[in-house]
């Protein structure tokens, strides 16, 4: 019974946290730029407005299915990630599964954007995939290192092992090289500046979002809110020792997000090839050295 309640309410809770985090990010950036910024619940208003639009333009059936794959795939990922109090599905799929189901929404999105027949969208997807090649390799290597060190690929067991060691059992403390490498990769995974090439509003008219409007854009915003929490939670579970209760969890989410946002606020945008080169030249060697430390 408890599990059923969790299954029903987890997406709603995460969605609410996610929208507040996005609202917080807009406010945070605005304050750094000495603007007042929108109210923190602005993202709710935006989603509500978009879902109520009368005209919804679609370019074909793949465009419709893509938006379902986007949200459905993200919800799927959400269930496999252990959060405080709920890890029922962690026994059916480990971290390897999570890393690959994270790509389902991306693929769905890519196919839908392709069908909109807008070159801005295609360029955005092409850039997003190239960025994937950039950040995913170091991120995966840090995960492989953690899995080898603890002899498990299950995320839930990784949390337990870290929590048994207290603060000094955190992955970031025991393996600082892996932790920092993964943090840089996470910046790319979330698409925050300087790794923002796929959206790039001033160059390619927001890339994948170009032909999305109305409820399509609304669902994309819902998905974005959930995906931000999901990706941050993966990092928290791997390197920050997970969380024992929801209070600690939300604190960790906001602290981690603030760190990433502070980088986001002061950087410009890297060119795609520079971003990929950066990912292969800084975090990747760090991760390699970190793994070598684990082997020897």
């Amino acid at each position: 019974m408890n599990t059923v309640l969790w299954i029903i309410f987890l997406p709603i809770i995460i969605f609410i946290i996610g929208t507040f985090m996005l609202g917080y990010s807009r406010k945070f950036i605005a304050r750094i730029e000495r603007r007042y910024g929108p109210p923190i619940q602005q993202v709710f208003y935006d989603i509500f407005k978009l879902m109520n639009k009368k005209t919804n333009i679609s370019h074909g059936w793949m465009h419709d299915i893509a938006i379902l794959m986007l949200l459905g795939g993200t919800l799927l990922t959400l269930y496999f990630i252990p959060v405080p109090g709920f890890h029922f599905f962690a026994q059916y799929g480990d971290m390897l599964v999570i890393m690959y189901i994270l790509l389902i929404p991306a693929l769905g999105m890519a196919l839908g954007v392709g069908e909109t027949a807008n070159p801005n969208g295609s360029i955005g997807i092409s850039r997003a995939l190239m960025m994937l090649a950039g950040y995913d390799i170091p991120f995966f290597l840090t995960f492989i290192g953690m899995a080898m060190l603890n002899q498990t690929t299950s995320m839930y067991e990784l949390i337990n092992i870290q929590q048994a060691g207290g603060f000094f059992g955190w992955g970031l403390i025991t393996n600082p090289l892996l932790g920092v490498a993964a943090l840089i990769a996470l910046q790319g995974m979330l698409g925050e500046k300087p790794f923002e090439v796929m959206v790039a509003p001033h160059e390619i008219a927001t890339g994948p979002m170009t032909e999305m409007g109305g409820k399509y854009l609304g669902i994309m915003m819902i998905q974005h809110a959930i995906a931000v929490v999901v990706e941050l939670t993966i990092y928290i579970n791997l390197f920050l020792g997970g969380a024992l209760n929801w209070f600690e969890y939300i604190i960790k989410l906001f602290v981690l997000f603030t760190v990433l946002l502070s980088v986001n606020a002061v950087f410009g945008r890297f060119r795609t090839d520079d971003a990929v080169r950066f990912m292969w030249k800084i975090p990747l060697p760090m991760a390699v050295i970190g793994v070598l430390f684990i082997i020897f």
Binding site: M51, N52, K53, T55, N56, I57, S58, G214, K215
Partner: peptide, 8 residues
């Protein structure tokens, strides 16, 4: 939940 889409 949103209103009907239109193919273009």
């Amino acid at each position: 939940l949103g209103s009907r889409r239109k193919h273009v």
